[in-house]
Nucleic acid binder design. Structure first.
Lengths: 329, 329
DNA sequence: AAGCAATATGGAATCGATACCACATTAAGT
DNA sequence: ACTTAATGTGGTATCGATTCCATATTGCTT
């Protein structure tokens, strides 16, 4: 690998001049520039980003911490982030927590050691240690998916979307509406969405039976089991089923189809996420579109704002959503 | 950000000693070590990976070039890669070509400038410029998905799997088997899979009508259109339909259901990819599982081998596959 | 008691870039 | 013709780590 020194020698100039040509700043004569450009091409010179970062304190890299790489949501969000950042000359460095909270902190340190200029966290929990680690951090930081106190956050409108889904059932005449949620460690999905459901039920003076509230773990299988529980082990069978993720909703759908329970005739179904899957199951699943790509893009924009100085306080941004009603209701 | 110098001062030792403690090599007295460890903790010191990389010429990072981030296949492969590399102390740096061939070369340079220790390319084409760029590269390189000449490659068994799918149709009595492929720029998917289909047909002396060979672009919509074409604009209607990706197969399925054409009664259907979708559509789609995670893992292992010196020639590895027959046939 | 290996520590060079300062040379303004 | 500004170029310190070499101390062996 040739270095800037080699290029300088070949072009018959100093390293300083080569640097000037590379970064297009300072005064360089036409001939000198030409000789440098030529030398660079001939030698296949590629500047070392590390040396540059070390000297300038800017790496041009944004770290993105994902709970899991292989989910549709994460993919879409990353796409949005990538698009926006690439357009502004930044690269992204992805890390994966495999859903382990302790790995979030570990990854933040890892990214810090690599001198990333900013960090985006697709958050799944609101761990105290995590908040402290972030507070100690001296670089731009944006969380997506959970509202973290003291941290610029972009969140989906979990409450209102869940509220609307529930009301949409109610407006169709449903009264016995069951709920498939997730554990409360995931605040946005586990707590806020449930609250939206509960409040909508309360607003219409509909009782919520304890046995109608089930919990899964985001998987198809857990949705299947929750539906089974709801349809087999309850005194009052619900006529509508609201799962807080599409995967669980589709798991539930699997159970209903297996038992030949008509959807939406006997039981109506709603999910959240607008996954590819939701459109292609039978019947097509009603769901909520959170516009994940836009979310990623918005998040990236916030990081860029912080990067370019417009620090603009710790913002809280709540995103749009859209109910997609299909044949499952 | 404290540096090694600050830690040294705090602990009352030299930078050298701190480095020794950090890397656990050389002689360090018990007390000195203790003071250093304490200082590190107190100051929240995080070593600069850049300085280290610069000095040692090892970054501990493997670059992964993806055609697109948000596909199920890519996600799974990355998962496999990540798992294997993380276990060996490596991080991955993802880049995205957005399916543009020229971006592959650009990204290789980008990764090189970041001193990655190796590069994995999820290849979609066999561009000559690309091959030259790789040949010039002096770091470990593995391609996944396409067999690139002169490059260690891991490939799916496109030929035999396509052959088997076709024979599976034939063994069920089908003779009029249509094919939905993709353009030949993607050699593995566009050329090899088609050859598997053609050879299987030839082996059983079945004629292949020109009009039975359609092409899509990996999207649902293109699968839908191809099916429409096949069922509306042909003289002889096929009784079986083999799409080289699940997405196109499911697009085709959408058309068939819309026209109330019974699957598999009137038309049988096969895809490739073992996507989540394939299991949850109605009827469940028959497909081919390429074990993407294993593929990623295997690819990572090859990189690791090259990294640890066992250079072992330019290997060519062909992966296993498995036909999953479901109700669509 | 002398010699030598093992242990312990620090100084200084180095990796490859950038940036500041110094110093020419040329052009422009009065 | 002389000052001042613009242009062009190179030397050297610096970023934060590692590594080689030199030196000091200790413990063992004969």
């Amino acid at each position: 690998m040739p270095t800037i020194k080699d290029v300088a020698k070949r072009a018959g100039v100093s390293r300083t001049t080569v640097s000037r040509v590379l970064n297009d700043n300072g005064y360089v004569s036409h001939e000198a520039r030409q000789r440098v450009v030529e030398a660079v091409k001939e030698m296949g010179y590629i500047p070392s980003a590390h040396a540059k970062t070390m000297r300038t304190k800017r790496s041009g890299v944004i770290g993105v911490i994902l709970p899991r790489i292989s989910t549709e949501t994460a993919s879409r969000v990353v796409n949005g982030i990538e698009e926006e950042l690439a357009a502004n000359g930044y690269q992204i460095l992805l890390t994966n927590t495999q859903l382990k909270p302790e790995k979030e902190i570990e990854n933040i340190k890892l990214l810090k050691s690599r001198q990333v200029d900013g960090i985006i966290l697709l958050a799944t929990n609101r761990n105290q240690d995590l908040l402290e680690t972030i507070a100690d951090l001296s670089i731009p930081f944006v969380a997506l998916g959970q509202e973290l106190t003291g941290v610029t956050s972009v969140v989906y409108d979990d409450y209102n979307s869940a509220f609307d889904v529930t009301e949409s059932f109610i407006s169709k005449g449903h009264q016995d509406i069951a709920f498939i949620g997730v554990p409360e460690t995931d605040h946005a999905v586990g707590v806020v969405r449930k609250q939206g459901y509960l409040d909508a039920m309360a607003k219409h003076h509909l009782p919520v039976k304890e046995e109608w509230i089930q919990h899964g773990n985001f998987s198809f299988e857990s949705g299947y089991q929750a539906a089974k529980q709801l349809m087999e082990d309850t005194h009052f069978k619900p006529t509508a089923l609201f799962a807080v993720t599409d995967r669980m909703a589709i798991g539930a759908l699997g159970y209903l189809k297996e038992k030949q329970i008509d959807v939406p005739g006997e039981v109506a179904l709603f999910g959240i996420g607008a996954s590819d899957l939701s459109l292609h199951v039978t019947p097509p699943l009603s769901t909520v579109d959170y516009f994940n790509e836009d979310a990623g893009q918005k998040t990236a924009q916030l990081i860029l704002e912080q990067l370019t100085g417009k620090v603009g306080e710790k913002e809280k941004i709540k995103l749009n959503y859209r109910l997609i009603k299909r044949d499952s209701v």
